[in-house]
Lab assay of single mutants.
Amino acid sequence: MAAAAAAGAGPEMVRGQVFDVGPRYTNLSYIGEGAYGMVCSAYDNVNKVRVAIKKISPFEHQTYCQRTLREIKILLRFRHENIIGINDIIRAPTIEQMKDVYIVQDLMETDLYKLLKTQHLSNDHICYFLYQILRGLKYIHSANVLHRDLKPSNLLLNTTCDLKICDFGLARVADPDHDHTGFLTEYVATRWYRAPEIMLNSKGYTKSIDIWSVGCILAEMLSNRPIFPGKHYLDQLNHILGILGSPSQEDLNCIINLKARNYLLSLPHKNKVPWNRLFPNADSKALDLLDKMLTFNPHKRIEVEQALAHPYLEQYYDPSDEPIAEAPFKFDMELDDLPKEKLKELIFEETARFQPGYRS
Results as ranks from 00 to 15, higher is better:
Ala2Cys: 15
Ala4Gly: 10
Ala7Ser: 03
Ala7Lys: 15
Glu12Leu: 04
Val21Glu: 00
Pro23Ile: 15
Arg24Pro: 11
Ser29Pro: 06
Ser29Ala: 12
Glu33Asn: 14
Tyr36Arg: 07
Val39Gln: 03
Cys40Gly: 13
Asn45Gln: 10
Asn45Cys: 08
Lys55Leu: 08
Ile56Gly: 06
Glu60Val: 02
Cys65Ala: 08
Leu69Lys: 14
Phe78Asp: 05
Asn82Thr: 06
Gly85Thr: 13
Ile90Glu: 15
Ile90Pro: 15
Asp100Thr: 15
Val101Asn: 04
Val104Thr: 13
Val104Trp: 04
Leu107Thr: 04
Thr110Leu: 06
Asp111Glu: 02
Asp111Met: 03
Leu112Pro: 02
Tyr113Cys: 05
Leu115Met: 07
Thr118Met: 10
Gln119Glu: 11
His120Ser: 13
Leu121Tyr: 06
Ser122Val: 13
Asn123Thr: 12
Ile126Asn: 05
Tyr128Leu: 02
Phe129Cys: 13
Phe129Ile: 00
Leu130Arg: 03
Leu130Ile: 12
Arg135Asn: 15
Tyr139Lys: 06
Ser142Glu: 12
Ala143Ser: 03
Val145Met: 02
His147Lys: 03
His147Ser: 04
Arg148Pro: 02
Leu150Ile: 12
Lys151Gly: 03
Asn154Glu: 01
Leu156Ser: 04
Asn158Ala: 06
Asp162Tyr: 01
Asp162Cys: 14
Leu163Cys: 13
Lys164Ser: 09
Phe168Leu: 00
Gly169Ala: 02
Gly169Trp: 08
Leu170Glu: 06
Val173Phe: 06
Val173Trp: 10
Ala174Val: 00
Asp177His: 07
Asp179Tyr: 00
His180Ser: 05
Tyr187Phe: 00
Val188Ala: 02
Ala189Phe: 03
Arg191His: 04
Trp192Gly: 01
Trp192Tyr: 01
Tyr193Phe: 01
Arg194His: 03
Lys203Leu: 02
Gly204Arg: 01
Gly204Asn: 13
Tyr205Gly: 03
Thr206Glu: 03
Lys207Ser: 03
Ile211Arg: 01
Trp212Glu: 01
Ser213Glu: 05
Cys216Met: 02
Cys216His: 02
Glu220Pro: 03
Ser223Phe: 09
Asn224Ile: 00
Asn224Phe: 07
Arg225Val: 11
Arg225Leu: 01
Pro229Tyr: 11
Gly230Gln: 12
Tyr233Ala: 03
Gln236Ile: 03
Asn238Met: 09
His239Arg: 15
Ile240Pro: 04
Ile240Asn: 02
Pro247Glu: 06
Ser248Lys: 11
Gln249Phe: 11
Asp251Asn: 03
Asp251Tyr: 00
Leu252Lys: 08
Ile256Asp: 11
Ile256Phe: 01
Leu258Ile: 11
Leu258Met: 01
Ala260His: 09
Arg261Glu: 04
Ser266Gly: 00
Ser266His: 12
Pro268Gln: 12
Pro274Trp: 11
Trp275Asp: 01
Phe279Trp: 12
Asn281Glu: 09
Leu287Gly: 06
Lys292Pro: 04
Met293Gly: 05
Met293Ser: 09
Met293Trp: 08
Leu294Ile: 10
Phe296Cys: 04
Arg301Cys: 03
Ile302Glu: 04
Glu303Phe: 15
Val304Leu: 08
Glu305Thr: 15
Leu308Thr: 13
Leu313Ala: 05
Leu313Met: 00
Gln315Pro: 13
Gln315Tyr: 09
Tyr316Leu: 10
Tyr316Lys: 11
Asp318Met: 07
Pro319Cys: 11
Ser320Leu: 07
Glu322Arg: 14
Glu322Phe: 15
Pro323Phe: 15
Pro323Thr: 03
Ile324Lys: 13
Glu326Ala: 02
Lys330Gly: 07
Lys330Pro: 12
Asp332Met: 09
Met333Leu: 00
Leu338Gly: 14
Lys344Trp: 12
Thr351Ile: 09
Phe354Ala: 10
Tyr358Lys: 05
Arg359Ser: 00
